[in-house]
Design a protein around this nucleic acid. Sequence first.
DNA 1: ACCAGTCAAGGAAGC
DNA 2: GCTTCCTTGACTGGT
Length: 304
Amino acid sequence: MFNNWSLCCISKTLSDSGVNFKSMTYTNFSKMPRTEALRELCTRILHNVKTAHRTIQFCQQRGISAYRVSSNLFPILTHTDVRMKISDLPNYSDIVAECDKIKQTLLQKHIRISSHPSEYITLSSEDSNTVDNSIRDLEQHAELFDLLGLPEDYNSPLNIHIRKEGDISGIVKKVMGNYEKLCSGIRKRLVFENNDNKNGNWSIRNLIRHISEPYDIPITFDYLHHSILPDGLSEKDAFLLAYNSWKEYTPLFHYSEGIVENGILTRKHRDSPESFPIVYNPNVYLDVELKDKCQAIFKLQNNL
DNA sequence: ACCAGTCAAGGAAGC
DNA sequence: GCTTCCTTGACTGGT
């Protein structure tokens, strides 16, 4: 039976036992004197890296073969009034040491690592500040991946959406113009995921035609987004088109189920799976976006 | 200790 | 054209 599940950011089992990530808002950060605020932020960040480590170990223990690192491990750093790299942090050496421990853990038992930078980041914006902010965010992800010793290729994908709707060729030109400017640590890992806007552009069909085929970039297949915006493709055809776009790499796809309201499938994620996904080629990993997180995976591991 | 409201992002969608 | 919504778990402040 298919068993290549990827845990999305959080283990509910761990959080129920009090192991949680910490965050920090800019509002709060800006209220404190800078030195004090930075010290608190550093403490929280180190805590988060340790929590990510524990979560990866949890995956190893529970037969979960991949892990999506949360994009909130390092709060605020990319904020326009903070603008720090991980390496700028006063406790950088502690963070490096903790990342080295994660590296060792990953060497003992392989866990595939990926990330899904915030859905608000965009390479398609007409506003250059917005694009710059997005690139800074991506650079932070690449910096972390490098610290974790992750390969600079699609085995450790950074997955984003193309957010803008409208004139496809204009948007693609914009996105690819910005793509060329990205450092290799981002570019060699960056993949694009189908989205589900009403009558939206970014179905699997259009991503394959306008992004993957001309520019040789893998496409992430998301089951739920596809069922909301199939764009004339069956689930099987969309899955296999996306599958083939990964070439020699093993694809990492997203699995979730939507809540049905008044007989209409919505994009809201269910807590727990009701059905087992059809995996049209078993050589994939499925990142489980159901809200029960690891507990949803346990259900899938036990064939519901 | 608990609860409700807030936070953070940029664009879509709805008035 | 303006407002609301989307998304998420943790933070925050009031009780």
